[in-house]
Every structure is written in structure tokens, then in C-alpha cells.
């Protein structure tokens, strides 16, 4: 694909790869709001900036699958299901089974949450299978800017995966306090694993890092896997015509990663929320 890029001259393969790893970031730089023209500019924008590309793709996919589920759920019948309804039922039963296997309290929010998590992350990961230049080139064509940064796979953006992880983390805290009360929640850190008041600081030292590591590991696991896959796709894309069989082989392997990471994220979400609902910890 590198050769196909006649209109954008990349000085080197390093530049090709790094350009594909840059974001279309909107924020304030040098005193005015606008899109960043380079990763350095994007970094200067600090916290109050938005990765428009990943956020846009993420929302498009999210609205897409949710609208699809919504339309199908309106026409569900308990009689003989059609192929589309069958697909949704299969998905729903898979989620229900996963939740029943790992979540032992009663909460009506968990199963839909798991379904949303799995479907959304799966779709975002699947964007990895679209050849690496198609969506950026399309974006460049639409905007007329041949040097536009556009990242097509939302889960290769740490912000997106962290967005999921932080939301899950906040839910864990919310449900922990709701179920155990503030005292019970704090007691989990102070009186465990050593239930002596004078060992509370030691307990806190043991428990708190593990607790805080949950969202970080959740976000980084997904991000790391998808980012690595993306980089390999980019390197393969540099090979010219040899990329075709290699791309196919890596894509086939990557299908596994896509499904596995989406499933893992869903399962860990369920497991963390289950811990939040366990009173005896």
C-alpha cells in the first residue's frame, strides 16, 4: 500500500507508520482552537483535547449496533425466529450465560452492560481488519487534506479503552458503596487481609494498589493487544505486493485476538462488578 500512496509522499517507512499512529486531535494550541497538525502539537494541547477520529468511529459503531439491536428488539417474536432475531438471541444467550457463570448477585444492569461492552469493543476491534489505508485515505479525500491524521481503530487509542475501564471502575465503586455502605467499602481496604485495627495501614498498602490496578490493567490489556496488532498490519502494509498473503494470514490470526479481547473485557467487567456485590469480602 505504500506505493499506492502517490499523492502523499512518505519520506520513510518510519514516517508512514508514525503518521498512521497519529490522531486527529482537536484542542487549543498556541492560543487558538483547532486540529493538531502533528503528534507534537496534539501533545501540547494537554488534557482538554479530543481525538475526533477515534471518538467519531466509536460513536458511529456504537450508534450503529445499538440502533440495530433496537430495531430487532421491536420486532421480536416468541414464535419461530428469523435469522436476524436468531443472531440477537444467540448473542443475548451468550451474554446471559457469561453473566450467570461469573455474577452471583442480582442486578438487572449487568447483562445489558455486558452485551454493550462486548458488542461495542468487538466492533471497534474489527475495524482493525479494514485495510490500514482505506479509512484514513477516505477521510483525506473527504477533507481534501492529504496530510490528515486519522486513526480508524478506536481500541488502539488508550483514551477509548481507558474510557471503558474508568466507567467500569466507577461502577465498581458505586455498587460497592451501594451494597456494603461506605464503612463496608472502606473496611474492605483497611481490615483485609489482616483483620486487626493496628494493621490497617498495612492492609491499605496491600489492597489499594490492587484495586487501582484494575482499571489500568483493563485499559492497557485491550489497548496493548490492539495497538500491537495495528502496528503489525502497518508493517505488513509496507511490503508492497507481498503484503497480500501476509495481511490475510495476520488478519485470520487477528480475528482470534479481536474476539478474545472483547470477550475478556466483558468477562473482567462482570467479574469486577461481581466482587463489588460480594458482601463477605
Amino acid at each position: 500500500m505504500a506505493e499506492a500512496h502517490s499523492e502523499v509522499a512518505y519520506a520513510s517507512s518510519t514516517e508512514y507508520v508514525s503518521h498512521h499512529l497519529g490522531f486527529l486531535t482537536y484542542g487549543k494550541v498556541d492560543g487558538h482552537w483547532g486540529f493538531a497538525h502533528s503528534p507534537e502539537e496534539a501533545a501540547q494541547m494537554g488534557f482538554w483535547a479530543l481525538n475526533v477520529d477515534t471518538m467519531l468511529i466509536s460513536l458511529l459503531l456504537g450508534i450503529g449496533f445499538m440502533a440495530f439491536y433496537f430495531l430487532v428488539s421491536r420486532k421480536m417474536t416468541a414464535g419461530v425466529p428469523g435469522p436476524v432475531q436468531n443472531f440477537i438471541e444467540l448473542l443475548a444467550e451468550f451474554v446471559i450465560e457469561s453473566v450467570e457463570g461469573a455474577f452471583f448477585a442480582k442486578n438487572k444492569f449487568i447483562a445489558p452492560l455486558a452485551l454493550t461492552t462486548f458488542s461495542w469493543i468487538f466492533l471497534m476491534n474489527t475495524m482493525d481488519l479494514v485495510p490500514v489505508d482505506w479509512i484514513p485515505m477516505f477521510a483525506q479525500l473527504v477533507t481534501g487534506d492529504s496530510h490528515l491524521y486519522f486513526k480508524a481503530v478506536p481500541t488502539t487509542d488508550i483514551n477509548i479503552t481507558l474510557g471503558f475501564a474508568v466507567a467500569v471502575f466507577l461502577m465498581v465503586i458505586y455498587y460497592s458503596i451501594k451494597i456494603k455502605g461506605v464503612g463496608g467499602f472502606a473496611g474492605g481496604f483497611l481490615m483485609y487481609p489482616f483483620p486487626k485495627w493496628y494493621l490497617a495501614p498495612l492492609n491499605l498498602l496491600i489492597e489499594l494498589p490492587g484495586f487501582l490496578a484494575k482499571p489500568v490493567s483493563l485499559a492497557l490489556r485491550l489497548y496493548g493487544n490492539m495497538f500491537a496488532g495495528e502496528v503489525i498490519f502497518l508493517v505488513i502494509a509496507l511490503l508492497g505486493y507481498y503484503q497480500l498473503p501476509l495481511h490475510f494470514a495476520w488478519a485470520v490470526f487477528h480475528i482470534l485476538v479481536i474476539a478474545l479481547q472483547a470477550y475478556l473485557f466483558m468477562m473482567l467487567t462482570i467479574v469486577y462488578l461481581n466482587q463489588a456485590h460480594q458482601v463477605d469480602h
Binding site: L50, G163, F164
Partner: peptide, 15 residues
């Protein structure tokens, strides 16, 4: 950057 906040909010709304 703020993208992760946006994604968190979107995620909760979708769920």
C-alpha cells in the same frame, strides 16, 4: 486527553 471522559459518558449512556 478528554476523549476518555467522552468515551466513559458515551459508554454509560449506551449501557
Amino acid at each position: 486527553n478528554a476523549t476518555f471522559v467522552g468515551q466513559s459518558i458515551a459508554f454509560v449512556i449506551f449501557a
